[in-house]
Amino acid sequence: MPEPLSCAGSINSRGLRFSRAMVFAIEQINNSTELLPGIKLGYEIYDSCSSVSVAGDWTRCLNTGDKCSQSGMVMGVVGASGSTRSISMSHIIGPFNIPQVSYFATCACLSDKQQYPSFFRTIPSDQFQADALAKLVKHFGWTWIGAVRADSDYGNNGMASFLHAASKEGICVEYSESFYRTHPRSRIERVADVIRRSTAKVVVAFISTADMRILLEELSRKPSPPRQWIGSEAWVTDPDMLRFSFCAGAIGFGIEKSVIPGLRDFLLDLSPSKVADSPLLTMFWEEAFNCRLPVKDQTPDFD
């Protein structure tokens, strides 16, 4: 029998910020007498651990009310952040007409209402990004490029759209490689070697942050000729990528930002007692500040 599913590794601070922003919005709605008068919103937050299997398990729990959900009366689902996980969730809850709203799943395939009738999102389809990336590459006169993608719904669909748009712009592709974070290291090494040996100086990467980090770590093991990276929004706007100096100067498109009054104060208002109420926040606190949080309402024990 396979081992029980479990999360491993460090916490994704970007995902945590997304979830905290949602909590802030819900509290703003519940405290308002104008937005939804007479209605209170409740929520439960689950960690998919960037895993399709874990996301599927949580979704089945939500659907049945067994063990996971206290009421079993789920009116809607927010998430997941990734396209493949959102697709798997939609296949489970779609037949029950439970609305699903993702804030980060961008695969153009999810716009198909025949397959995903109850799926919605607050972020544009990758079709727009693929077309824009092709025009960006053409704008700088780069007509000989390499292409790398995540072997997932996000990467495969996004890169297919980009290559189609690039061909219309007269852009030639020396290679098109794919990999996924669970592939053997030999597969990732091969992709890294293709990039090192190629004559194309520009690399377009349609990859999620988790996969891109693995590729860049592999590339950092052995010096490589300078490359101009063109990135999809998933990784090119992630501050964590700045630690790879050879990736400096990467360009791509980002989602328009907005200033949300009160959000900054809400995110920073985390006392040890509030953190202790949440296992997720406790993990973040101990990882970020290199300390150990003891029993609630006690002063943190800094190592």
Results as ranks from 00 to 15, higher is better:
201 K>W: 08
262 G>A: 06
76 G>E: 04
2 P>S: 11
150 A>H: 03
30 N>C: 10
52 V>F: 05
174 E>L: 04
193 D>H: 14
124 P>S: 11
155 G>Y: 05
185 R>Q: 15
150 A>N: 13
20 R>V: 02
199 T>I: 04
78 V>D: 01
131 D>M: 12
192 A>P: 01
274 K>F: 11
167 S>Y: 10
138 K>E: 13
82 G>F: 14
96 F>H: 13
168 K>I: 06
300 P>V: 10
184 P>R: 09
146 G>S: 03
28 Q>K: 14
164 H>E: 13
104 F>T: 07
111 S>M: 09
75 M>V: 10
224 S>P: 00
269 D>K: 15
244 F>Y: 13
216 L>V: 04
173 V>E: 06
248 A>Y: 13
227 R>K: 15
126 D>L: 12
106 T>L: 10
294 P>C: 07
75 M>L: 10
131 D>A: 15
253 F>P: 00
249 G>Q: 08
30 N>R: 10
119 F>C: 08
100 Q>T: 04
200 A>R: 01
125 S>H: 03
73 M>N: 11
81 S>D: 05
153 D>A: 12
32 S>R: 05
168 K>Q: 12
42 G>V: 06
128 F>P: 00
219 L>M: 03
8 A>W: 04
228 Q>S: 08
206 F>P: 01
270 L>C: 10
132 A>Y: 01
266 F>N: 01
179 F>A: 07
195 I>K: 01
34 E>Q: 14
14 R>S: 12
237 T>G: 00
87 I>P: 00
187 R>A: 14
189 E>Q: 14
254 G>V: 05
85 R>C: 07
279 P>V: 09
195 I>F: 00
268 L>D: 13
216 L>R: 02
224 S>L: 04
256 E>Y: 07
228 Q>R: 11
85 R>S: 12
56 G>A: 13
52 V>W: 06
257 K>H: 08
